[in-house]
């Protein structure tokens, strides 16, 4: 009997804390339509949790993350496409909310440079190969 009371008390304490600390994707959030749910998960995985350190809203416990997860699912059900949903979020929170940096003028170097590095690397290998045959 005492054990049951302990459990109730602990549950209440934890519920109180966890209600301000919702868990990652809860069962009640999951959409019935599997395809839509998959879309929601994929979009969520690309949205940064603004109050966490380096987590997506898909993984995060934070209340804001949960709110955004639900909002994304509502928009999917309402028929919005991915671009519209991303734009809705970046209009309000800026590009910072995207975990995958967008292709814009200020991220041109970010996306382009790795390719340049790789090409330079290939060039060096071919240069070496060619020079070695000359000797």
């Amino acid at each position: 009997m005492i054990k049951k009371n302990f459990i109730i008390i602990i549950s209440i304490c934890l519920v109180h804390f966890f209600s301000n600390n919702a868990q990652t994707v809860e069962p009640d959030e999951i959409l019935k339509n599997q395809e839509q749910e998959l879309r929601a998960r994929n979009i969520s995985k690309n949205i940064r949790c603004m109050v966490c350190q380096n987590q997506s809203i898909d993984e995060s416990n934070a209340p804001l993350a949960k709110d955004l997860r639900i909002l994304i699912r509502e928009k999917i059900k309402a028929g919005k496409n991915n671009e519209e949903i991303y734009k809705f979020l970046t209009d309000r929170y800026g590009d910072f909310i995207l975990l995958k940096p967008p292709f814009k003028l200020n991220t041109f170097a970010l996306w382009f440079l790795p390719l340049i590095f790789f090409v330079i690397g290939i060039f060096i290998v071919f240069f070496h190969n060619k020079k070695s045959k000359q000797i």
Partner: peptide, 19 residues
């Protein structure tokens, strides 16, 4: 990169796992 963008433009971007 996020530090460079912050220093030279007035915006903040994040570079996460997908990149």
């Amino acid at each position: 990169y996020p530090l460079l963008v912050e220093a030279f433009t007035n915006s903040k971007i994040s570079v996460g796992e997908p990149y």
